[in-house]
Design a protein around this nucleic acid. Structure first.
Length: 322
DNA sequence: AAGTGTCGCAACCGCACCACC
DNA sequence: TGGTGGTGCGGTTGCGACACT
């Protein structure tokens, strides 16, 4: 697959767009919409390739774009979604109205990554870094080591979704080898599993069926609950509240509720900060669902909405293009 | 004031996927 | 079934603005 034909043509402008070019493109798209991007430059009177026009429209000229700084909530969402999706910027952008994949990618690389490292969190794996690692990561923030795809990290990173089926395949309260394999392999990046999970999710947010399943399948086994409490590889956890700390928005409630979190024995300051501000534990939230604050409910919702919306996106993707 | 380094953003590049012929 | 064109995505680069020496 070579270069696009539209890019091979001679006399095509490259580089920054002039206001005149923006106006031409914007006027054309506003009047006629996007038919075929390859024909847009010719019809709009631009010396650009269609691909460049498409990018300019999507990343800059689109009227529904939200310009300006990212809000703390948006930062939270980006971090949460990145933990689940890795560098799938387009999917992350789909969850943030008015933001583009390019914008989010740049924001991640220029700002959020450093912020996480400062908080002692590996931005690739979303796991805690040792103090030595923090120094190393800070030293080479702009080097290629930081640009590695996070798949390796995701494979062993502590974000698992599960449903009753996994827990039904247990013997004497222990997961069988087969169910363990399933449990370990069926992580959230497994789209099929997301779809399975989605089937139980009310797109409006928090879902009572999940709570019921949780109570039915997990509550009777206190040892497993303690496993959730003890083992960061189970359940939901997120460092997203770090951004709230950064923005000075951490509340007394936040601190009080999270400071009772499970990991309370480390001496590391980074770990302690992470514990106190960062973790949202799904089992705890479900258990105390009636006491959920608005903020926590939103966090659940944001985590639950993704699978639902991803379905929508997959459906859109699979439908014929215009 | 001039040179150098750093950072953030816009845009490009290459690849993969899909639809159509 | 293979070739071709269109589109979308993630990684990378280039450049301007700003800070620092």
């Amino acid at each position: 697959m070579g270069r696009h034909s539209c890019c091979v043509k001679q006399k095509l402008r490259k580089g920054l767009w002039s206001p005149e070019e923006d106006e031409k493109l914007s006027n054309y798209i506003t009047k006629f919409g996007v038919g075929s991007w390859s024909s847009v430059p010719k019809l709009a009177g631009l010396q650009r390739c269609g691909k460049s026009c498409r990018l300019r429209w999507i990343n800059y000229l689109r009227p529904d774009l939200k310009r300006g700084m990212f809000s703390p909530d948006e930062e939270d969402r980006i971090i949460s979604l990145h933990q689940v999706l890795g560098n799938r910027w387009a999917q992350i952008a789909a969850q943030l109205p008015g933001r583009t994949d390019n914008e989010i990618k740049n924001f991640w690389n220029s700002s959020l990554k450093k912020k996480l490292i400062k908080q002692g969190i590996d931005p690739n794996t979303h796991k805690l870094l040792s103090e030595d690692q923090v120094k190393d990561e800070e030293n080479c923030t702009n080097k290629t080591s930081m640009l590695q795809i996070p798949s390796a990290g995701l494979m062993d990173q502590p974000f698992h979704l599960t449903n009753s089926r996994s827990f039904n395949s247990e013997v004497n309260g222990q997961l069988t080898e087969a169910s363990k394999d399933e449990f370990v392999s069926k992580q959230v990046f497994d789209l099929l599993y997301i779809h399975e999970f989605q089937a139980n999710v009310n797109p409006n947010g928090y879902n009572s069926e999940i709570l019921a399943q949780y109570q039915q399948n997990m509550r009777p086994n206190d040892h497993r609950q303690s496993e959730f409490n003890r083992n960061p590889n189970y359940g939901f956890c997120s460092e997203t509240s770090i951004t709230k700390l950064e923005h000075g928005q951490i509340t007394e409630t936040d601190f009080a509720s999270s400071s009772t979190s499970r990991m309370s024995s480390s001496n590391s300051s980074n770990v302690r900060r992470y514990q106190n501000t960062a973790e949202i534990q799904m089992p705890r939230m479900l258990e105390n669902s009636e006491d959920l604050t608005w903020e926590v409910e939103n966090k659940i919702e944001s985590l639950f909405q993704y699978p639902y919306i991803s379905i929508k996106n997959e459906e859109l993707k699979s439908s014929p293009r215009q």
